[in-house]
């Protein structure tokens, strides 16, 4: 199997992991907040809007993953261009570039989900503190943003 493997396969594996892992993280995070939110809404339906806002927060990691995946596809010509013939070395480089967003995206989305779910509990008590609940959750996202940044810079730094 490995004999037939070329750089492009590695690059696509990177793209798949970026989209997949970050997406899994977001799904877990959003799901967790969703459970908290439905706990609150079952007693207090008027809080739907506010809790939905919090639920959306851990979703961004999945988008960062998709973004990275799409950039890889674009740069390697899988979409909208000619498929590049990558060397193994280039393939590994692209794969590595995808790792920050894949790994950090997975774990930070889960962590952010926990923070946001706790924020839902805060909203249940004190709806006027929505701003603070959001900030607590967004503090976590910083690291996903930094990972995304690293992935993007790495990708743009690779010459094909």
């Amino acid at each position: 199997m490995f004999e037939s493997m070329t750089g492009i396969v590695l690059a696509l594996l990177g793209a798949a992991l970026a989209v997949g892992l970050a997406g899994i993280g977001s799904a877990i995070g959003v799901g967790l907040v969703g459970q908290s939110a439905s706990g609150v809404v079952s007693e207090d339906p008027d809080k739907f809007g506010q809790t939905l806002l919090l639920q959306a927060l851990p979703g961004t990691q999945g988008i960062y993953g998709l973004l990275t995946g799409f950039l890889i596809m674009q740069r390697t010509g899988v979409v909208g261009g000619n498929l590049l013939n990558l060397t193994m070395e280039q393939g590994w480089a692209v794969f590595m570039a995808a790792m920050p967003v894949a790994i950090v995206g997975l774990l930070s989305a889960i962590a952010q989900g926990r923070a946001a779910a706790a924020g839902v509990g805060l909203i249940a008590k004190r709806p006027e503190e929505l701003g603070k609940a959001i900030i607590f959750a967004v503090m976590v996202e910083t690291y996903a943003v930094l990972a995304l940044l690293a992935s993007i810079l790495l990708l743009f730094g690779i010459t094909f």
Binding site: S36, G39, V40, D44, A117, A124, K125
Partner: peptide
């Protein structure tokens, strides 16, 4: 983590009940 999602719904619901 399994525990998180086990309790997330119930804890949030209890938070609202506490208000009453």
């Amino acid at each position: 983590m399994a525990n998180d999602s086990k309790y997330a719904y119930a804890v949030a619901r209890v938070r609202v009940l506490e208000n009453r």
